[in-house]
Nucleic acid binder design. Structure first.
Lengths: 142, 142
DNA sequence: TGATTATATTTGTATATACAAATATATTTT
DNA sequence: AAAATATATTTGTATATACAAATATAATCA
């Protein structure tokens, strides 16, 4: 059944969740080539472009909770794609050479992903949709 | 950091996920009064209004996978809010009297939830946003 | 009618994320 | 400088959902 045919087609709860899951699925496919989940891939990209970035900053950029960031970094460390140095209360995250090598592939995946969804609504409409989702997100409590 | 300030503010992956999580949070608050998660509450509402509804139908209406529906029903059965009768390959789900009693409260929660987000963009813009999210969802593969 | 295929549901396991509490350090106040 | 407070991160645990395989039944075909 299509979302637009469900009895809850006017409910943002279902629409936003259904869309997010579709996007998750699409993004997973896009980053499968580098064997990373989308969130891991985005985190790695930031760590490459912003050496020494701290978990708190990553949480802000990725719109995730600090505890989630810790878990993401752990996995990337296991894969030897980033390293973490803790000094005092702060932690700095750096991409390893192995991680940095992935950058061109990561950018390719990103491009594929964007193309995977922008063609549906077109460039302009997609941008508007994202902007409205952001507006709502930002003005909602929490 | 606001979504609109993140370096990925133009990326649907983050926008849709961030919005869905905000909605999840808001919805959880709305249905806390009846001690149900939003998905459980919506499932119960359908079971009340459509006695004997089958898991497959619920999956379509709620935009969730059948396996997820099974898990939701299990929990509602534990709480004695629905019962399930299996005959052959089909299963029918019915709200119990205890479940039916909740209907007025469920509708109240639903109303609160809607009000919780529609005021941000206004009625019309909210409707448009939902419609666009549905359109994208429906036309995406998967 | 027996074999094959299709449909409906459930079960075992995995992923993505969050909440709350714990830890550790830094900053401010008195 | 000691006490109180604030900040950054991690850890233990929980939730929501999905995937893949298993189970069970029904429908179709040969």
């Amino acid at each position: 059944m299509k979302t637009s045919e469900s009895r809850f087609r006017r409910c943002m709860y279902f629409s936003s969740n259904a869309l997010a899951r579709k996007m998750e699925r699409l993004a997973n496919e896009s980053w499968q080539r580098v064997d990373l989940s989308p969130s891991h891939a985005y985190l790695l990209m930031i760590a490459i472009e912003e050496p020494g970035v701290q978990p708190g900053t990553l949480a802000g950029e990725l719109q995730l909770k600090p505890s989630t960031i810790t878990r993401l970094i752990e996995k990337l460390e296991e894969k030897k794609l980033v390293v973490r140095f803790t000094e005092g209360k702060t932690t700095n995250v750096y991409a390893t050479p192995k991680g940095k090598e992935l950058l061109p592939q990561l950018k390719e995946c990103l491009k594929d992903f964007y193309e995977g969804y922008t063609h549906v609504l077109g460039n302009e409409e997609s941008a508007k949709l994202v902007a409205n989702m952001n507006k709502l997100s930002d003005e909602l409590p929490g």
